[in-house]
Computed example of a mutant assay.
Amino acid sequence: MSSSHSFREAMSHYPTGVTVVATYYQGRAVGITANSFASVSLEPPLVLWSVAREADRAAAFLESKSYSISFLNKEQEGIAQYCADNEDLPPGRWSENAQGFPVIDGASVVLDCRQYAVYPGGDHDIIVGEVMGISQTDGRGALSFYKSEYGKLG
């Protein structure tokens, strides 16, 4: 196998959507940008995403039993970058939904999830969540990530 750098470069050629996963941890709303997201199952409805074990917020999501996943719309690049760089959610850009989850305001879709399973995956942990609720807004397109740059779809 080639180096991790060449693997990362190769994987950058696969376009993905951009999500922010958010939870409450130690009394704070914590978020992380994730493009390692996929659906897993329809019955029960399951999704997965992964977090680097060395990430400063890994414990928040590994210990949390519930979290939200916000699909960012094409105008939310700033939020994606903020949540990639900062542990707390961006001030004034999130709220708590009716089910008590911290969510990104204006996201195209929000999934309310309950932790279903965690699996080791190399230097990451794969977190599988059962979708307990779904909310959608208008179709404002999607934020994408390709070759280490944000893009806009729709």
Rank of each mutant, 00 (worst) to 15 (best):
L72S: 01
H5T: 15
I69M: 06
S6L: 14
Q115E: 13
L111G: 02
A29P: 01
R140Y: 08
Y24L: 11
A10L: 12
L48K: 09
V131R: 07
G31I: 00
I79R: 00
A55E: 05
S2C: 09
P90T: 06
P120F: 10
F37K: 05
Y116M: 10
S108G: 14
S95V: 08
Y14F: 15
V30E: 02
I127T: 04
G151L: 05
G133D: 06
V18R: 00
G154P: 04
G154N: 08
Q99C: 08
A38E: 10
I79T: 00
H13L: 14
E130I: 11
K65W: 12
G17W: 01
T137Q: 14
E54I: 12
V131M: 08
F71N: 04
L62C: 10
V21S: 05
Y14D: 10
H124P: 04
S95P: 05
Q76R: 02
S108L: 15
M11D: 11
Q26A: 14
G27E: 07
E9Q: 15
D125M: 14
Y25A: 07
G121D: 09
P91A: 15
V128P: 06
G154W: 06
E77R: 15
E54N: 11
H5I: 15
L72C: 01
Q76D: 03
V118A: 10
A98I: 11
Q76P: 01
Y14I: 14
A58Y: 07
A34E: 02
S70T: 00
V118M: 10
D123T: 13
Y82D: 03
K152H: 11
S50E: 03
S2Y: 12
A117M: 11
Y146A: 03
L72R: 00
G151F: 03
R93T: 06
V131Y: 06
T137Y: 08
R114F: 09
G139W: 10
E149P: 07
L111I: 03
R8V: 08
A52C: 07
L111C: 00
I134T: 15
F61H: 03
D88R: 13
A80T: 04
D123G: 12
S50V: 03
R140G: 14
V103Q: 02
G151D: 04
V51C: 03
H5S: 14
A55W: 04
S68K: 01
V51L: 06
Y146V: 04
S68Y: 01
L111R: 00
G106P: 02
L48I: 09
K74A: 13
W94M: 05
N97Y: 07
F61K: 02
A29S: 08
D56Q: 13
Q81T: 12
E87W: 09
Q76H: 03
Y150D: 01
V109F: 07
I69Q: 00
Y67C: 03
V103S: 00
N73Q: 13
Y82H: 09
N35P: 05
H5P: 07
G100A: 07
V20T: 02
Y150N: 04
G129S: 12
Y119T: 13
E63S: 11
A38L: 10
D123H: 13
